[in-house]
Simulated assay, not measured.
Amino acid sequence: MPLALQVQQGFTKNQCVTGLRAAVGILEKWAASSEQACHVLRISRSTYTRARQRDPDWAVALDADQMQRISFVLNIHATLRLIFDNPQNVYGFVSMANDNEFFNGRTPLEIMAQGDMISLYETFRRIDALRGAQW
Rank of each mutant, 00 (worst) to 15 (best):
M1R: 14
P2W: 06
A4F: 10
L5I: 13
Q6A: 10
V7I: 15
F11S: 14
F11V: 11
K13L: 08
N14R: 14
R21C: 14
A23I: 11
E28Q: 14
K29R: 15
W30N: 01
A31Q: 15
A31L: 10
A31H: 15
E35D: 05
A37C: 09
C38T: 11
H39Y: 05
R45N: 06
T47A: 12
Y48I: 02
T49V: 13
A51I: 00
R52W: 02
Q53V: 00
R54I: 00
V60E: 05
L62R: 07
D63W: 02
A64Y: 03
Q66F: 07
I70N: 11
S71P: 00
F72R: 10
L74H: 13
N75F: 01
A78R: 11
A78Y: 06
L82Y: 05
I83C: 04
F84I: 06
Y91V: 00
G92A: 08
G92K: 03
S95P: 00
S95F: 04
A97G: 11
A97V: 10
D99S: 08
E101T: 09
N104D: 13
P108Q: 04
I111H: 03
Q114C: 07
D116T: 14
I118N: 08
S119D: 13
L120N: 03
Y121L: 15
Y121G: 08
F124G: 04
R125D: 05
A129E: 14
R131V: 07
W135Y: 11
